[in-house]
Design a protein around this nucleic acid. Structure first.
Ligand SMILES: [Zn+2]
Ligand SMILES: [Zn+2]
Ligand SMILES: [Zn+2]
Ligand SMILES: [Zn+2]
Lengths: 141, 141
DNA sequence: GTTGACTCTGTAGTGGCTCCAGGGGCCATG
DNA sequence: CATGGCCCCTGGAGCCACTACAGAGTCAAC
């Protein structure tokens, strides 16, 4: 536990979050504005580390800033029910699973395309499958 | 083959590409500027359809605009070798495979998290795992 | 000649940062 | 006291690939 407040560089080092990103989080209201030194430097304390790590962890799990905002609000009310958080995880899991499915289809298409070895463009499978209809992915409208 | 030129709406309908997107592609030099009617309406011809479909297929396969630009340049020179295209497909395939791997890890994390059913925030596994990564212990934020 | 669908330009917004210019603060050394 | 070097400040622009307006003009049918 640090007793002395520290500058933005210290917070950056302790969390691995870019300085510019920290200022950005403050600007959009994700991090509470810290006290300032006489010269105008931001002075952070330990609770800022906790909050920033929470945000970071959420981002690493792919949650949007808005979702993390909601999770933070929830986390600040320990006595409230946590259905909201459950919902958000389930929704996000769905989203991730859909994204994996989409990318897997894409990967298969690309694997089919990659069997062109050193021809001329006129006979190239890759250029051909982009030019001719039906070879690439189906219309997803 | 259409003999008469058509407006941007027609091009949009024939390709499934948003009108605003078509204008955007022209602005960034992906689509050649078409002729104009007396009133200033864009007048497209069949080769615009071909080119726009090429772009669309490339985007559906996840290629960046710049990659597609390069592929288009290549496609316009039927006699040149196609190694460049091969390279791009391989690179992109790598990228997609890495993305799938990342998302799969994410998915597994989220699946581990989702087993919290109707507790209070103070005991919530989800909030806990965001607060203290690696363990289910909770701390004030 | 009036309606109504279509199109035009230009600008701004999205998410989540990241980078930069041009200045000020802070501490140690000479 | 001055200087150097590092840290920090603000405000704004840039990234990607679109998307969404506002406000004006065009065109064909009736
Ligand atoms: Zn999500
Ligand atoms: Zn080839
Ligand atoms: Zn790629
Ligand atoms: Zn819970």
């Amino acid at each position: 536990m640090t007793l002395q407040p520290f500058n933005i560089g210290g917070l950056s080092r302790q969390t691995g979050v870019n300085i510019e990103t920290i200022r950005y989080y403050e600007k959009i209201g994700m991090l509470p504005p810290p006290a300032r030194s006489q010269g105008g430097f931001r002075q952070y304390e330990d609770h800022h580390i906790q909050r920033l790590r929470f945000i970071r962890r959420g981002r690493d799990l792919g949650f949007s800033i808005d979702s993390i905002r909601a999770l933070l609000t929830l986390a600040e009310r320990p006595d409230s029910p946590c259905e909201g958080a459950d919902q958000m995880v389930l929704l996000h899991l769905d989203e991730v699973e859909r994204k994996i499915a989409d990318l897997t289809l894409l990967r298969d298409e690309l694997r089919k395309m990659k069997n062109c070895c050193g021809q001329v463009v006129a006979q190239c499978q890759i250029i051909g499958s982009l030019t001719a209809p039906g070879s690439a992915q189906q219309d997803a409208i």
